[in-house]
Each structure stands twice: as C-alpha cells, then as structure tokens.
C-alpha cells in the first residue's frame, strides 16, 4: 500500500477548520442565538463539518 498522501486530504481539513473558526467568531460576536450559546459551542466543535453548517442555518437569529 502506497503512502497516504496527506497533501490531498489537507484542503478538506483546512476548509473544516475555517468553517469552525468562522462559526465560532460569529457565535462570540452575536448577542442572541436560537437556543443556549454553550450548546452551540459544543455542536460547532464536536459535530464535524455538519456542526458549523447547522449553526449558520439554524442558530443565527434573523434580525
């Protein structure tokens, strides 16, 4: 089996990282979310990929 090429996987990890960071920054800066803030922190960090998306779709309150 050939060596696993991390260079190919890296972009995926980077994108996931950016999503998490952006979601976290947004979460810190907003005052209100749907549901408790600490819950969103857990979801964003621990539910990989889907967590930040869920936050953007459901967690942000429409102003």
């Amino acid at each position: 089996m050939e060596a696993f090429n991390w260079g190919l996987i890296a972009p995926i990890l980077v994108i996931q990282g950016i999503l998490i960071i952006v979601a976290m920054i947004d979460l810190i800066r907003t005052d209100y979310t749907n549901g408790p803030k600490w819950l969103w922190v857990l979801i964003i960090i621990f539910v990989s990929t889907l967590g930040p998306i869920l936050y953007f779709v459901l967690g942000r309150r429409q102003r």
């Binding site: 190919l8 995926i12 994108i15 999503l19 952006v22 979601a23 930040p52």
Partner: peptide, 24 residues
C-alpha cells in the same frame, strides 16, 4: 454580514471534492 459568502462556497467545495477523493 451573515457570513453566507464564507460558508456557502466552503460547503459547496467540500461537497464537490468529497466524492472524487473518497473514490480514489
């Protein structure tokens, strides 16, 4: 402001590269 310009492209990119890489 609601970050759509950041997360929508990223999610689309993620979705479109997932399959080529996993099938490889």
């Amino acid at each position: 402001r609601n970050k759509k310009w950041i997360w929508v492209p990223l999610v689309i990119i993620l979705l479109s590269i997932m399959d080529p890489i996993t099938s490889y």
